[in-house]
Simulated scan of single mutants.
Amino acid sequence: MLILRHSDVTTVLDSSDEAVCQAIRTAYVAHCRRETSVPHSVFLRFPNDTSNRIIALPAYVGGDRPVASLKWIASFPGNIQHDQERASAAILLNSVVDGTPVALLEGSVISARRTAASAAIAAAVLTADAPDYVRAGVSLIGCGVINHEVLRFLRGQLPRLRRVTLFDLDADRARAFAGRVADQWPDLEVDIGGGIDAALAAHRIVSIATTAATPHTSTEPCQPGTVLLHLSLRDLTPESILAATNVVDDADHVCRAGTSLDLAQQAVGHRGFITAEIGDLLTERASLPYDPTATVVFSPFGLGALDATLAAHVYDTATELDFGVRVADFLSDRSSRREGNVGR
């Protein structure tokens, strides 16, 4: 068993944002080609507690580098008030040869970066033929870890990005976020919106990553031609979803668990409001030209296939670099004979 700590995972992922994006593209393409097995996530909730949860995301991804994994990710929004991260996670990789567990990875960084990379890839695809001014600015609603990573990956996917508008219900949090952005990326112009409507209207690319459990806003303030990355899935009213052009990662996964799309589905009794899945756009099985009059909403449930593929990349790289802590007798004295077979 190889145990990869937060520092190991971060060192690997910091080495190449493009390698992260390539892993996410690979996972989406494999899913589109039906080379994955992605059972529905299991939500562990607690009695008399509506905010905290732990989610299990099992997945298998085939292709040239097969991998089987389980992500176990906790979301405790109240942690933020105690200066702790909202999410914590662990990812277990199993050998696809004999099923034995061969690696345990700290998963919060993998989870955040796969989410952010998927959002940036979607933004690039959905604005590929848009005028340059569309790709020059972004509004970030929710000033937490996810949107910081989104900005990181958007800079790589949208090299003309120059302006950022922020909004968070916690004004101090927004100011601190603005300071970090200014320090890390001094070439960006950063301002704090006067409210959520102002932030929605500021740019034609918007990323929403909040802890909202129920819809609290609409797309009405958005400019025509806005591409909205609806990462937290429960922010937009069902009416906004029904009025938008909707792109998802997997229609069956995203229309569950009280997401805005689930509520929209319940309202109309079908999923016909979903236009495309991102894998079909990446493989050009479908096309969605930029429409300067429409609002496009990308709602990714966050498939376990993304975690699996990115975790396999981390494992392979860490093994080459001799990172982590090896426990040879994790299962038995003979368990080390299969180490290295996580994807083979």
Rank of each mutant, 00 (worst) to 15 (best):
P58V: 05
I55Q: 10
L57S: 02
P47N: 09
F43D: 12
P39D: 06
P66Q: 14
S69I: 03
L70W: 03
F43H: 15
L70T: 12
V61G: 04
P39N: 09
D64A: 13
R65T: 11
L57Q: 04
V38I: 14
N48F: 09
S41C: 14
R53Q: 10
R65P: 00
S51T: 15
K71E: 04
R65Q: 08
I55K: 10
G63R: 06
D49H: 02
K71M: 03
G63T: 08
L44V: 15
P39Q: 08
L44T: 15
G62N: 12
A59T: 00
I55D: 03
N48D: 14
V38R: 01
H40I: 07
L70K: 01
I55S: 05
A59S: 09
I54D: 02
V67G: 07
G63V: 07
R65I: 02
I55C: 09
P66F: 14
G62A: 12
P66L: 15
A68E: 05
V67F: 07
W72M: 10
F43V: 12
N52I: 00
F46I: 04
S69Q: 03
S69V: 03
P47C: 07
I55Y: 05
I73G: 00
F43G: 04
A56G: 12
L44F: 15
Y60W: 13
T50L: 06
N48C: 10
I55R: 07
V42G: 01
L44D: 12
P47W: 06
